[in-house]
């Protein structure tokens, strides 16, 4: 494998507009099935907001539905917060994670290889 071709190096210091993950945005939808939607990235700039949103989101029939379709990235602490919130839910309640980014599955597989009882991952939108 040759070194990266000089002319094809990422030249600028910044990602082109639209390619950055962007800041974390979390919103709670209303309707028959309340859903917590997150977009952008959960990293060290968004841990507090992420944790607060998860801890205060209402359960619907014992479930908290998270739509991560537009989430570009979540880091280890972001997943740890999610697992922590899930494990503190009342008996039988769970968090249903819809369409998480690929890094989510990879980190769960490494850090919680046996899965987390109170977290269910679904590939479809809520």
């Amino acid at each position: 494998m040759a070194a990266i071709d000089e002319g094809r190096r990422p030249s600028g210091a910044e990602a082109p507009p639209g390619l950055r993950d962007g800041p974390l945005r979390v919103s709670q939808t209303a309707g028959a099935l309340p859903v917590l939607r997150a977009s952008g990235a959960v990293d060290l700039n968004g841990h507090d907001d992420w944790g607060r949103a998860l801890r205060t989101a209402p359960l619907h029939d014992g479930e908290l539905h998270l739509d991560l379709t537009d989430l570009a990235f979540i880091d280890m602490r972001g997943i740890t917060v999610l697992v922590d919130v899930a494990q503190r839910l009342p008996e039988g309640a769970r968090i249903v994670v819809h369409r998480p980014p690929p890094c989510f599955g990879r980190m769960m597989e490494v850090l919680w290889p046996g899965g987390v009882e109170a977290i269910t991952v679904k590939g479809d939108a809520p």
Binding site: I4, D5, P10, A13, E14, A15, D21, G22, A41
Partner: peptide, 13 residues
């Protein structure tokens, strides 16, 4: 977040 873009762009190339 820009660093994530930077390294994945590099890795892809």
């Amino acid at each position: 977040d820009n660093a994530r873009w930077f390294v994945t762009s590099y890795g892809r190339r």
